[in-house]
């Protein structure tokens, strides 16, 4: 126990060393290196097509890197499949929300809960708890296909949380949410972070980025363009150039 705690303060939770991904001739992620300590909230920003989602897929194993080394708690994980990475502590959402439409809202979250619980009742209780955290507990018995876009995104978060992950990767979960919902997610992320959960968040809304990021990574054309606190990074002329020059945001 003590060793674990000591370990986690010295070795980074995740580390990427010169990770690249090519799709044919397209260099979607180029030579990206960074690390995250346990307990951080890091935002990943960048113009459309910068390679943010691709980087997520490399981290959680949906894609294999063309080059580079990925580690988790000091251990190389490049050869682990997505489900194996989920089991060691990776939880994630998808940019295009992936609802299991034949199931109720609660059952969707149960799919994540089964990672920790074998029994239906225990999984249901854990899933219900996750739904409460994202404010969907009232909709637990509804068919997941009936949910609004914003609710679906929150359900994705609940499914990831019910896995009891060490690090949660959120891919634009705020898109399509109204202001109150955004506020709720921000305070949820903060609250869970206070309990020790690490977050890597892709986010276009810069207000949100400022609100909770301890550190910001900027990706542009697959490359890490800047890294630092939100204020520093957003004042960086290269970053402004990348945003204005590419997608006019």
């Amino acid at each position: 126990m003590n060793m674990n705690v000591a370990n986690s303060s010295t070795t980074p939770l995740i580390e990427l060393d010169r990770v690249s991904k090519r799709f044919g001739g397209l260099q979607a992620v180029a030579d990206v290196s960074f690390s995250m300590r346990s307990g951080e909230i890091v935002s990943l920003i960048g113009p459309n097509g910068a390679g943010k989602t691709t980087l997520f897929n490399l981290i959680t194993g949906q894609l294999q890197p063309s080059e580079g080394v990925l580690s988790f708690e000091g251990r190389e994980i490049g050869n682990l499949k997505p489900h194996q990475r989920a089991r060691i502590g990776f939880g994630r959402t998808f940019q295009i929300s992936q609802t299991l439409t034949s199931m109720s809202v609660l059952e969707n979250a149960m799919i994540g809960a089964f990672l920790q619980e074998k029994e239906l009742a225990a999984a249901a209780a854990r899933a219900q708890h996750a739904l409460t955290l994202v404010g969907l507990d009232h909709a637990a018995k509804r068919r997941s296909g009936e949910l609004t876009l914003g609710e679906r995104r929150r359900l994705e978060v609940a499914r990831a949380l019910s896995m009891n992950p060490k690090i949660v990767l959120l891919d634009e979960v705020m898109a399509g949410l109204n202001e109150t919902e955004v506020e709720e997610i921000i305070s949820l992320v903060r609250k869970l972070n206070a309990e020790g959960v690490t977050f890597l968040v892709i986010e276009h809304n810069l207000k949100v980025v400022r609100a909770f990021s301890q550190r910001v990574l900027v990706l542009n054309r697959g490359q890490l363009l800047a890294e630092g606190t939100a204020d520093d990074v957003l004042a960086n002329p290269d970053v402004i150039e990348a945003y204005l020059g590419r997608s006019g945001q």
């Binding site: 249901a124 992950p165 309990e195 959960v197």
Partner: peptide, 26 residues
């Protein structure tokens, strides 16, 4: 203890009967 775990929630969840969740058990 829980705070150091670095996980979303470790605490044992309260158990209710499955029917309360709208889930059919075996």
């Amino acid at each position: 203890m829980t705070a150091a775990s670095g996980r979303a929630f470790d605490g044992a969840a309260p158990s209710r009967s499955l029917s309360n969740y709208g889930v059919v058990g075996f």
